[in-house]
Write a protein that binds this DNA or RNA. Structure first.
Length: 839
RNA sequence: GCUGGGAUGGCGGAACUGGCAGACGCGCGGGACUUAAAAUCCCGUACUGGAAACAGUGUGAGGGUUCAAUCCCCUCUCCCAGCACCA
């Protein structure tokens, strides 16, 4: 007795101590059957390429937040496969980069060793969640067979003049001891370690991404299935602005100050000109500047400030007049003072601006501080009725007035609307050779070298005679040498520089002595083209087979974190367009549809992090509740793109749902023996409402998967299961169709139950059910009856009921009738939905 | 400051194209089963009043359009994300 009870308890005690060994069983069988191996050479079926942003394998392993996007693409790809598509859903690892190297430095483990261990751990963690990845196609960016082609792309860019050496000061992280791209900064700090970034002059390799700025911007129009927010972020990052460059002659010299402005229409209000402190003209004018000592001291002060400190001065602009220097406004030949000021950036435009305090906030602030004249040249445009048509009335009397308006006191250009003035003035500039129209971008060329060890070597050999020479293609890959010491030197040289026998080589052009480039590529290099490698991962003769690429590209659906909107996603588009121009790929955009995944936060509402001790490990969740419960919960917890807090409590709902599904299985009607003709043993008549619910579920879940609205898909499945649970016997056909719908979400449970009710594996090779539109409707409909917009009753009427019949029924209803006793003025009837009386 | 997105029960959230606000889940209350607990099942659960029928109120705040507003328009508050002296 006692033993029996213990057994019962053991079995009934859910979810603790549950047996999920069927998950491992099916995973093994799937793998044995190569269920998810994609034959990319099979071009006969329609293809669907679903891609996750591949992870960086960190030592900490996955937490429950990481797989959320992978679960979604997994549901999606399984759904597409059931629909008959040839699906490519691969996974790989972006494994070069600073964390592995820093970890190596700290723990004296070679990055190769720790990276391989981390990758192995990630694969384990991912496999137990039951993803349908084709692991045979895994890519690893640190594999020489892979980075050979990363280097190859760089070489092609070098050949085309898109990769060049530069000695400009760049962002330098004093802690990571490496140069960084603009994209690697967060609030003026190193995105990796949080140290304030300095400007440091350094030899570096740079990619001419600005050559592609217009295409990167314009082609966003070709991407209707990208989220608008991400496109907007890219637009802002590229930051195209149209304006004019204008030359201000420096009085008494041959020199000119070239300024950039988007508001040439305000130029008659220009009362001074500002140069960035670093502007080369300042040094050139040294002898003519009356207060040079003061100026030199100011420049020195600015130079010693980090970017962060400089932008901290946001509210407090500083500057100095250059005494003895004045500039001439070409439009009115007026002499204006010249200043240097830290609110003008040397890195944007021409590093010089014309200041119009009446119509620019910053100039206004500066002019007030230094008592410079403010002169109005734009007034708000007024319509005939005196209403302000441009700018707001509040702005009309107060300066600065920064909206468009009408030009005033602007010589021959007076009285024009701003837009027209800009066009005419640009023409005038061109005609008189005082300037021209000009487009500027915030986007900067991509600083592409890192003075660190763990990255792809840049395939360049420096020769005293020939300069920088590309490594010949047949010599690729340039392998990253094994070293004992990979500490960054901090001198601006990579640790590779210390390996003399690696560095010292022969110039491929002249055969003389050559020295290898010792900088490595940034983290983002390998991820800029990896999606192409999955199509054709073993190819060692080409980056990708042309025919395969043409068939499989572009990626149909790409899912990942929004943090990549302005880095990876711009870099990858840039490289792809370059490869397109080279004829390597057949389409000029890599990703057709893009969806960003909302973060999973800790239960305390903070980001999951060791620091807060709020990390939930998926392995633990899977062990206790099963992989399918984890999958289902993550899809159910909220809208996919929204950040949601993890809740183990709420996860129990998903587990209970799966238990309910499982508990239905014994009540499923047995299969009809195949020898018996189906007509001879008709299925018991299904309640029509149930059939309708089934077809509604097929429709809704399918549409919701397409639209990435998994939370409502799961909720609809729950509604169907709740309805089924009330039946003493479960119609086999309904249960089977339901399992098919469930299969993308809970692949293990669906497979297990599919087999438990006597079907042959694999459910994942079946076909997604069709819904019958005729069955979506029920015989009777509910019409809500309102009186003056307030709900007074709900009528159940036959579907065919006419408007008159429904009005009559409403009048007959006791509660509704009360309100209609004195008659009514009119009514509005929305067929099948609502009837509203106005009394 | 600029750009984009939000604000709905105790909680996560749902609601087609302006048409029954709160689906589904969590939690909570009550009941069944049990010696008991857990698990499971059933009933209830926006708020206020009422035994109930029902009535009133209610989607961040205030106004507007409409027979009808979570949804459209205007003003405002707060939250999240990205960018930020970009001329």
């Amino acid at each position: 007795m006692a033993e029996q009870k213990a057994d019962q308890n053991g079995e009934q005690n859910k979810p603790d101590g549950r047996d999920f060994s069927f998950e491992k069983k099916w995973a093994a069988q799937w793998e044995k059957a190569r269920l998810y191996a994609t034959d990319t050479a099979d071009l006969s079926k329609p293809k669907y390429y679903v891609l996750d942003m591949f992870p960086y394998p960190s030592g900490a392993g996955l937490h429950v937040g990481h797989p959320k996007g992978y679960i979604a693409t997994d549901v999606f790809s399984r759904y597409k496969r059931l629909q008959g598509f040839n699906v490519l859903h691969p996974m790989g690892f972006d494994a070069f980069g600073l964390p592995a190297e820093n970890y190596a430095l700290k723990n004296k483990v070679h990055p190769r060793v720790s990276t391989d261990a981390n990758i192995a751990n990630y694969i384990n963690q991912l496999k137990i969640i039951g993803f349908d990845y084709d692991w045979e196609r895994m890519v690893n960016t640190t594999d020489p067979d892979y980075y050979k082609w990363t280097q190859w792309i760089f070489l092609k860019m070098f050949e085309k003049g898109l990769a060049y050496e530069s000695w400009e000061p760049i962002n330098w992280c004093p802690s990571c001891l490496t140069g960084l791209a603009n994209e690697d900064l967060e609030d003026g700090k190193c995105e990796r370690c949080g140290s304030p970034v300095e400007k440091k002059p350094l030899r570096q390799w740079v990619l001419r991404i600005t050559d592609y700025a217009d295409r990167l911007l314009d082609d966003l129009e070709k991407l209707p299935h990208w989220e608008p927010s991400i496109k907007e972020m890219q637009r802002n990052w590229i930051g195209r602005s149209e304006g004019c460059e204008i030359d201000f002659a420096i009085e008494g010299t041959e020199q000119k100050i070239r300024v950039f402005t988007t508001r040439v229409d305000t130029i008659f209000g220009c009362t001074y000109v500002v140069l960035a402190p670093e502007h080369p003209l300042v040094q050139e004018l040294k002898t003519q500047i009356g207060n040079w000592d003061e100026v030199a001291a100011y420049i020195e002060k600015i130079k010693n400030k980090s970017d962060l400190e400089r932008t901290d001065l946001n509210k407090d602009k500083s500057g100095l007049p250059l005494q003895g220097i004045s500039a001439v406004n070409p439009f009115n030949n007026e002499k204006v003072a010249v200043y240097i000021a830290d609110y003008v950036l040397n890195s944007y435009g021409t590093g010089a601006v014309m200041a119009v305090p009446a119509h620019d906030e910053r100039d206004f602030e500066f002019a007030n501080k230094y008592k410079i004249a403010v002169r109005r040249s734009i007034q708000p445009a007024l319509a005939t009725d005196g209403q302000v048509t441009a700018g707001s009335a509040g702005d009309a009397d107060t300066l600065p007035f920064t909206d468009d308006g009408l030009t005033v006191d602007s010589g021959d250009f007076s009285g024009l609307p701003s837009a027209e003035a800009r066009a005419k003035m640009a023409d005038w500039l061109k005609k008189t050779k005082n300037g021209s129209g000009k487009v500027n971008y915030k986007l900067k060329d991509w600083v592409f070298s890192r003075q660190r060890y763990w990255g792809e070597p840049i395939p360049i050999i420096h020769c005293e005679k020939c300069g920088a020479v590309g490594v010949p293609e047949q010599d690729l890959p340039v392998r990253l040498p094994e070293v004992e010491q990979y500490e960054p030197s901090g001198t601006g040289e990579s640790p590779l520089a210390k390996i003399e026998d690696w560095v010292s080589t022969v110039c491929p052009q002249c055969g003389g002595p050559g020295r290898r480039e010792t900088n490595t590529m940034p983290q983002w290099a390998g991820s800029s083209w990896y999606y192409l490698r999955y199509i054709d991962p073993q190819n060692d003769r080409a980056l990708v087979d042309k025919k395969l690429e043409q068939h499989w590209s572009p990626v149909d659906f790409y899912v990942g974190g929004a943090e990549h909107a302005t880095r990876h996603l711009i870099y990858a588009r840039f490289w792809h367009k370059f490869l397109f121009d080279m004829g390597v790929v057949a389409h000029d955009e890599p990703f057709t549809r893009l969806q960003h995944v909302g973060l999973i936060m800790g239960e305390d509402g903070r980001k999951m992090s060791k620091r807060w001790g709020n990390v939930i490990n998926p392995d633990d969740v899977v062990a206790k509740y099963g992989a399918d419960a984890l999958r289902l919960y993550e899809m159910f917890m909220g809208p996919f793109d929204q950040a949601v807090n993890w809740s183990t409590r709420a996860l129990i709902g998903a587990r209970r749902f799966l238990d309910k599904v499982e508990n239905l299985a014994p009540r499923v009607q047995p299969a009809v023996a195949s020898t018996t003709p189906p007509a001879a043993t008709p299925e018991p008549a299904l309640p029509k409402a149930l059939l309708s619910e089934l077809h509604k579920t097929i429709k809704k879940v399918g549409e919701d998967i397409e639209g990435f609205k998994f939370n409502t898909a799961v909720s609809q499945m729950m509604i169907l299961v709740n309805a089924l649970a009330e039946l003493p016997a479960i119609p086999r056909d309904v249960y089977e169709k339901f399992l098919l719908i469930l299969a993308p979400f809970a692949p293990f449970t669906a497979e297990e139950l599919w087999s438990r009710i006597g079907n042959k594996p694999f459910i994942h090779r079946q076909t997604w059910p069709q819904y019958d539109p005729a069955l979506l409707q029920t015989d009777s409909i509910a019409v809500s009856v309102q009186v003056n917009g307030k709900l007074r009753g709900v009528l159940q009427v036959p579907r065919q009921a006419t408007e008159e019949e429904i009005i009559a029924a409403a009048g007959a209803d006791a509660n509704i009738g009360k309100y209609l006793a004195d008659g009514y003025k009119k009514h509005i009837y929305v067929p099948g939905k609502i009837l509203n009386f106005v009394v």
